[in-house]
Nucleic acid binder design. Structure first.
Lengths: 253, 253
DNA sequence: TAATCCTTTTCAGATTATGAAAATGCTTTT
DNA sequence: AAAAGCATTTTCATAATCTGAAAAGGATTA
């Protein structure tokens, strides 16, 4: 009678499932995790967790800090992004989504990850127009005064924001207010703020936990964007963000 | 009496260990793998493999192509490289090694992954000198006529080389001969070959299976490098390569 | 239509993972 | 300095789970 979800446990290996949930927990954590953290989060027996962790360590998927005893992501997945042998590798999957965006809006669009308290541009696609904002992969930009950077902060609390305001002229209250508006409409704005004559629209990309894992931004000469255009571009960006999220949720092929 | 290696199986969860070996096999494969491939490689019972794969799929670490039935890397680790929240994230670990290299040699040094039959520059560090080769992260360069590119081909057979010679003037025999020499001395060379007045030295970075997962190259104005200098730079590059390999083997903390 | 090959499912039995509890190690408190 | 507190690690008997042979299912070829 009761219609269960497609896989209600039949044929699945419990110990493996547990180990993978532990692995996910460690991957998603912002810092090294203690065994007791895992115990609290997943409610498995500490002994079970310990055995599973030992196995994960043995195979290189998890590492342990010898002094703090805490666990963190192991080398085996740490450098997965470097393994670029396959034709359908990581960059190849994401970049076409940005290219689509550029085709629709005509403006340069980039993808940023967070690295050392800055936003780092790791891929993108350039506007075909003669007058255009340049794509600069590898460039680092600050978080609190750029569209892509602000998108990383979109869900931040006042406490967290304080850390990123040391080197800027921005004050806490105005940024907080701005992020609140951004949160509501779904995108961040940067109008002649970080660079003169440049307007940028930023959008966060969320993982399955609703946390920002990377951001997208479209940059254009300010003369080419009015309110209507911002609306149009932000919609395209949000579409792209959804597509990247979907990729991460496993909607391949 | 017999001194066994630190972990001869005690306390390790066998099913988890098997599942992780399967996962590694899939991560390392050049193409989608069949269940029978895994069976041949690891010699587990097909039923066991199937159950483990089902669990890996359920948790998102492996995906399956519905039409070919073949297995490939799942979303859960697919986008691990995008998760840049942690302070010690992926780029932050590698880039300092390149910076060290630049400090020693004074020349621009970059890291490349393979992407779509080209070498893609994903990070690097720039020479501090006034006359310098520019770092261009995001730039794509061909495999058979650049130092970084040739480093990817260093262990290639004649058959594999043929695929990469379609668009170039290079002939098979001379490239094969050049790679043979490169293999022996440990680095590749590109002297005024892809760009005029530019000399580059390339070095592969190996994974635990001895396969090239990324390459490093130092580029400099040709006027600044003689044989002795090439020797010096290549040594520094090989040191950096070893360090990155070690990172991947889990020698953290 | 039969044969071949590969994937998927079944199920009973045997191995293996589990969890309570104890031990160990480290830090804080008295 | 001793003891309490807290977290990780180990132990071990037993219950639960994984394993693997075999069969079924599905797709392609002869």
């Amino acid at each position: 009678m009761e219609q269960v979800s497609k896989n209600d446990g039949k044929g699945l290996i419990k110990s493996v499932q547990k180990s993978l949930k532990i692995l996910k927990y460690i991957i998603d954590a912002n810092e090294d995790v203690a065994l007791s953290d895992i115990q609290k989060a997943l409610d498995y027996n500490v002994s079970t967790i310990h055995h599973l962790l030992k196995t994960l360590i043995e195979e290189g998927f998890v590492s342990q800090n010898k002094t703090t005893k805490r666990y963190y992501i192991g080398p085996e997945i740490f450098f997965t992004w470097l393994r670029g042998r396959r034709p359908e590798n990581y960059f190849s999957r994401v970049t076409p989504i940005l290219e689509e965006c550029v085709e629709a809006t005509g403006e340069t669009t980039n993808l940023f990850i967070r690295d050392n308290g800055e936003a780092l541009c790791i891929t993108g696609s350039e506007s075909p127009k003669t007058l255009r904002a340049f794509l600069r992969i590898g460039r680092r930009i600050p978080l609190p005064c750029t569209a892509a950077g602000k998108a990383f902060l979109i869900n931040y609390t006042r406490e967290e924001l304080k850390n990123y305001l040391k080197d800027t002229t921005k004050d806490l209250i105005s940024l907080e207010e701005e992020l609140k508006i951004s949160r509501q409409r779904g995108y961040t704005l940067e109008i002649n703020e970080y660079e003169e004559m440049i307007t940028a629209i930023g959008v966060p990309v969320f993982d399955r936990n609703g946390r920002v894992i990377c951001t997208l931004s479209t940059i254009a000469p300010s003369t080419r964007v009015d309110e209507e255009r911002i609306e149009f571009i932000s919609n395209k960006l949000m579409d792209a963000s959804k597509k990247i999220s979907e990729l991460m949720l496993g909607v391949f092929y």
